[in-house]
Structures are given as structure tokens and as C-alpha cells.
Simulated assay, not measured.
Amino acid sequence: MTRWEYVTVPLLIHATKAILDQWGADGWELVQVVPGPGDGLVAYLKRPKES
């Protein structure tokens, strides 16, 4: 059974792609983006936990 770890990341509108590309390069998969505080967004990411 796969075990997952999760992280929430605030996204800056003008740098969304760069932020997601960096997390993706570290093995994180985007699950969802939701409205955050103010005009911001929050990304929820997951990746398999290392054994």
C-alpha cells in the first residue's frame, strides 16, 4: 500500500507556474488549487513517502 505525504503551498499569481514547476521537480504532484486568503491561491500537493 502506498503511503503519502502532503503539503500546502501558497501560490503567488504572478509566479504560479514557477512555484509548481519547482515542487514538481522535487517529486510533488498537484492535487488541487483552492482560493486562499485575500486574492491568493493555495495548492495541495502529495508524493509517495519514502520507506
Rank of each mutant, 00 (worst) to 15 (best):
M1H: 08
M1V: 06
M1G: 15
M1Q: 09
T2A: 13
T2Y: 11
R3M: 09
W4D: 03
E5M: 09
Y6Q: 06
V7R: 08
V9Q: 05
V9Y: 00
P10I: 01
P10V: 00
P10R: 02
P10M: 00
P10L: 00
L11V: 06
L11Y: 04
L11C: 04
I13M: 13
H14M: 14
H14A: 15
A15C: 09
T16R: 15
T16F: 09
K17I: 07
A18C: 03
I19A: 06
L20Q: 08
D21T: 14
D21W: 06
D21S: 12
D21H: 11
Q22G: 12
Q22H: 12
W23T: 02
W23D: 02
W23S: 03
G24A: 10
A25D: 07
A25L: 07
D26T: 09
G27L: 10
G27Q: 13
L30A: 10
V31K: 04
V31S: 09
V31Y: 04
V33E: 05
G36F: 00
G36Y: 00
G36E: 03
P37N: 13
P37F: 12
G38S: 14
G38D: 12
D39V: 11
D39P: 03
G40E: 07
G40P: 05
G40K: 04
L41Y: 10
A43T: 09
Y44G: 02
Y44H: 14
L45W: 08
L45E: 05
R47N: 07
P48W: 00
E50G: 08
E50I: 11
S51R: 11
S51C: 00
